[in-house]
Design a protein around this nucleic acid. Sequence first.
DNA 1: AACAGGTGTTAAGGCTCCTAAACAAGAGGT
DNA 2: ACCTCTTGTTTAGGAGCCTTAACACCTGTT
Lengths: 161, 161
Amino acid sequence: MPRASVQERNDATYWREFDRNTLSHSMAHYLMAIDRLRADLGYARTTDVAEMLEVSRGAASMALAQLKKRGWVGEDPNRFLLLTEAGKRITRLVEQNFETLARFFEQVLGAERDVAFADACKMEHLMSMDTGRRLLALMRYLLNDDALSAKVREHMASFKE
Amino acid sequence: MPRASVQERNDATYWREFDRNTLSHSMAHYLMAIDRLRADLGYARTTDVAEMLEVSRGAASMALAQLKKRGWVGEDPNRFLLLTEAGKRITRLVEQNFETLARFFEQVLGAERDVAFADACKMEHLMSMDTGRRLLALMRYLLNDDALSAKVREHMASFKE
DNA sequence: AACAGGTGTTAAGGCTCCTAAACAAGAGGT
DNA sequence: ACCTCTTGTTTAGGAGCCTTAACACCTGTT
């Protein structure tokens, strides 16, 4: 296998893209919390979000103010929280990345569900849309072909040891 | 394909594991910078690290103090920086994760090298050792079998559109 | 009308990690 | 000996995100 090592990164500022990510980890989860609350309860208030994420109401209040300022979150006439169109787009993207990664780790790599979820949860908002779509395409290919799928699973099963 | 959605994460504090990661993104890069400098120049000083990562000397000084306190970085008799055994272990882990992810994105998923590197750089320190090893095993399997490798590549090539 | 609860915001403080700037100490040139 | 450059550390200040605590509001009792 050819090597593509860390050494090849000549651009010294490469590693800082982490900071400059469009969406921070916590912001991603605030967005998903609103989405999930609206699906589960039909509405989402600051307090509900705080409770779901287990942060203080103060923290949620300030984070949501940020997200409103960025145009990803709005309020309906009754002052309930909702995602704007832009907010929905970005939330869907992160959720898809989470789902793809978690399923890839669990179903293709054979990782324990907990590990798969924890890893996916940490990486979801960092994977680019392009890479996410590619990974999804690979999974469809690997999992839809029964013979191939079985071979991969068999090979990965050697990880029990 | 069965679904493993975000909704299944019932533990509300799941998402905070991000914060509690053993190694922050920047700390990981300080460790790798020392490793690379010692390989390239034969030594590493605070200033060299600062220069490589393009941060101020002050920032490097404080970050390195942290890493020394955690027992991952030490100094040789001439006050040059070096990785302790524990430091080497953790650094190697992150580097392997980077290499595995970058090659997976580029060679298996067919992503552009820049995108592959950027994504890998952001995710490297967040992928668990277990998942990393599994991914490596999958890649060996996919890339060592020429026929299979070709089929996967062909399928992923549809992403040109 | 007055009080109690639940809700949302704001203020003060902590931790991480950055910058810029002041400073101490060693190394070499004149 | 003196001056200067490089190196490393420290300090002050800012941004992100959290906590606790104080506050302002609204709403439903009583």
